[in-house]
Design a protein around this nucleic acid. Structure first.
Length: 290
DNA sequence: AAGGGCTGCAACCGCCCTCTA
DNA sequence: CTAGAGGGCGGTTGCAGCCCT
């Protein structure tokens, strides 16, 4: 007994989006901005469900989305964040502003899972313990576990810093992204024109027009993230991050309700750890994975 | 060269949360 | 306070392209 579907399935088109549909959606959002998704299909004439429109925008048409291979730093960041937060892809993706949660999720499921499994096997043979495998380790004492979580946060933070430094690009947070609305929609015009151009080229010249080829044309500028800087990293105290309801915890591979440690405790712990002086980092790291 | 299995990713589904009337 | 609508999120599926035999 779930909710009724968001739209009448009989009238709704499904499957891959065409360039024409993308153009319609993109130009509508450029004019009106994202939101009020319910109205989008009727206003644009798209025979798509409102959710499908939102998904297409957030995962694909939205400016500032980086496509293609993940860098080693992004990879490391995902591994650390996954160890910390479990499968909360939206949270993890918020630390990778140019990637969507769907991208991160897909990358995890198709690449990193296998990679980690492989390295875990090697580690078991060799006796080493990696950060990524820590979630599957036997139960730790409370103090030990705290130390490990702390080290994880530090490592994640460091990986993020490294990633940011190497990108030499500013990072966006949800609130800052909202503030950058004007820039965002300005750049979507460029996005759409590139999209169409690519589509035309594909139609005329490419013998192997694929869905993914088409997809690459929507790789857009990073202007959506331009409004913020490295100094305004998304805070772990964001309600989104600590929206640790039962569903989230159940699905998480990292047990944040470990033993007697309750979520409010963790929240304050995270806050204090992240914003206090960076003391004894070496000590923390040396203790972390023993 | 062909075809069967595998892989990667876009899109869908359904549940949950939040907001508003 | 409550119910319903809209939006967000994570899990899963379907299919196009690739790879291997």
């Amino acid at each position: 007994m779930g909710r009724p579907p968001c739209c009448d399935k009989a009238d709704v088109k499904k499957g891959p989006w065409t360039p024409e549909e993308d153009l319609l959606l993109g130009s509508y959002i450029q004019q009106h901005g994202p939101g009020n998704w319910k109205a989008v299909p009727t206003k644009t004439g798209l025979m798509r469900c409102s959710k499908s429109c939102r998904l297409r925008w957030t995962n694909y048409l939205r400016p500032g989305i980086k496509r293609g291979n993940f860098t080693e730093q992004e990879e490391r960041l995902i591994v650390h964040l996954q160890a910390l937060f479990g499968n909360r892809w939206a949270t993890i993706a918020s630390y990778l502003p140019e990637r969507t949660d769907n991208d991160v999720k897909n990358y995890w499921n198709t690449h990193l899972k296998k990679k980690l499994k492989k390295s875990q096997t090697l580690n078991q043979e060799g006796g080493a313990v990696t950060a990524a495998s820590s979630a599957s380790q036997p139960a730790l004492s409370k103090g030990r576990w705290e130390t490990r979580v702390r080290a994880d946060i530090h490592m994640a933070k460091r990986a993020l810093d490294e990633a940011l430094a190497s990108q030499d690009k500013p990072i966006g947070s949800a609130s800052a992204a909202a503030a950058a609305t004007t820039t965002t929609y300005a750049s979507s015009a460029e996005n759409i024109s590139r999209l169409l151009q690519g589509w035309m080229e594909n139609k005329t010249s490419s013998p192997k027009t694929t869905r993914s080829n088409y997809s690459t044309f929507t790789g857009a500028s990073s202007s959506a993230t331009a409004a913020t800087s490295k100094n305004s990293l998304p805070s772990v105290t964001d309600s989104s991050l600590f929206n640790l309801d039962s569903r989230n915890l159940e699905g998480s591979e990292t047990d944040l309700s470990h033993g007697d440690i309750k979520i409010p405790f963790l929240t304050s712990l995270f806050e204090s750890w992240l914003f206090e002086e960076e003391e004894s980092i070496e000590e923390v790291e040396s203790l972390a994975y023993v």
